[in-house]
């Protein structure tokens, strides 16, 4: 048996088992292999970087490296490989430079150099995080950053697009209000009317998509977030259908907005400073004078 054949057999064996293989597995697969042959073959393979080597309960485990892995870091030195592995592990959530430094045990200057190197090779990229503008995280070049980093559809280059949210908020409310009229004095009974007044997030999403006001594709989750803001605005009520899906219905406030807010004092920013005597008094209050005119 040539050494090439042995290597091929070992690789085949490793491909079958995702958990990795041990010396014993190999001996069982290729009976009669001498330990010298085995060691040479394995050493060759390790040199070619086909295997990762792990130590489990005292026995060595060989695990096949993924193909992309192998290609991406061709010609890289050891530091780069370590850093690359850490970044790869983090997936599309990215990893913070500080965490890389702690885990790789590299000095700060060296690490910056390595990262710059990898970046220039377009192997990794730096992504800015929305909830902390100064914080940069690194991830593999070909990955799409996670929602928690980019903030999803609501962010444009780390800026929250509040106007976009407002527009959607208004549109969703309009859609639900149109339906809500079904509830009042429905000739087919209130339960039927209420069911008609309810809309699921999917229906709202379809309406919004048909309107074509959004350049970004909004999925149901995005629309649900918008609907939740409406719930918190007190304009919409959330309920659950028997099949477990969340439904939404436009509602009116229990009491009309009146009372205190009809008087200037109700909305006066100086109410805490106003008194019977002194500079700010109701007798000379400008807000009140304007209101009484």
């Amino acid at each position: 048996m040539s050494s090439e054949d042995t290597k091929e057999k070992i690789l085949n064996l490793a491909r079958k088992s995702s958990k990795g293989i041990t010396d014993k597995d190999i001996i069982a697969e290729i009976p009669g292999i001498s330990s010298v042959e085995l060691v040479t073959a394995l050493n060759d393979l390790l040199k070619q970087e086909r295997f990762d080597l792990f130590n489990q309960n005292g026995s060595l485990i060989y695990k096949l490296k993924t193909q992309t892995n192998k290609h991406a870091i061709k010609g890289a030195d050891n530091e780069e490989k370590v850093v690359y592995n850490l970044i790869e592990e983090a997936g599309n959530k990215g990893i913070w430079i500080r965490d890389i430094r702690i885990r790789s045990n590299l000095a700060n200057t060296q690490l910056t150099k390595v990262l710059k190197n990898l970046e220039s090779k377009k192997v990794i990229k730096a992504v800015k995080c929305v909830n902390a503008s100064k914080k940069k995280v690194y991830m593999l070049y070909n990955l799409e950053p996670d929602r928690s980093l980019t903030g999803g559809a609501w962010y444009q280059d780390q800026d929250f697009e509040s106007e976009f949210v407002d527009v959607l908020n208004v549109q969703c409310h309009r859609f639900l209000s149109q339906r809500a009229d079904n509830m009042r004095n429905n000739p087919r009974g209130p339960v039927f009317g209420r069911t008609q007044a309810y809309a699921t997030a999917t229906e709202v999403q379809k309406y919004i998509t048909d309107l074509g006001i959004s350049k970004v594709v909004l999925d149901v989750d995005d629309v649900t977030t918008i609907l939740n803001t409406l719930v918190y605005d007190g304009k919409v009520e959330k309920s659950v259908f028997p099949d477990g899906s969340n439904v939404y219905r436009a509602i009116e406030t229990l009491i009309p907005s009146s009372g205190l807010v009809q008087v200037p004092c109700g909305i006066c920013p100086l109410i805490q400073r106003c008194n019977s005597s002194g500079l700010i008094t109701p007798q000379v209050c400008n807000y009140m004078t304007e209101w009484l005119e």
Partner: peptide
């Protein structure tokens, strides 16, 4: 109370 007092006072 404060607003009411203010209105009455005015």
């Amino acid at each position: 109370y404060k607003a009411l007092g203010n209105v009455l006072r005015r």
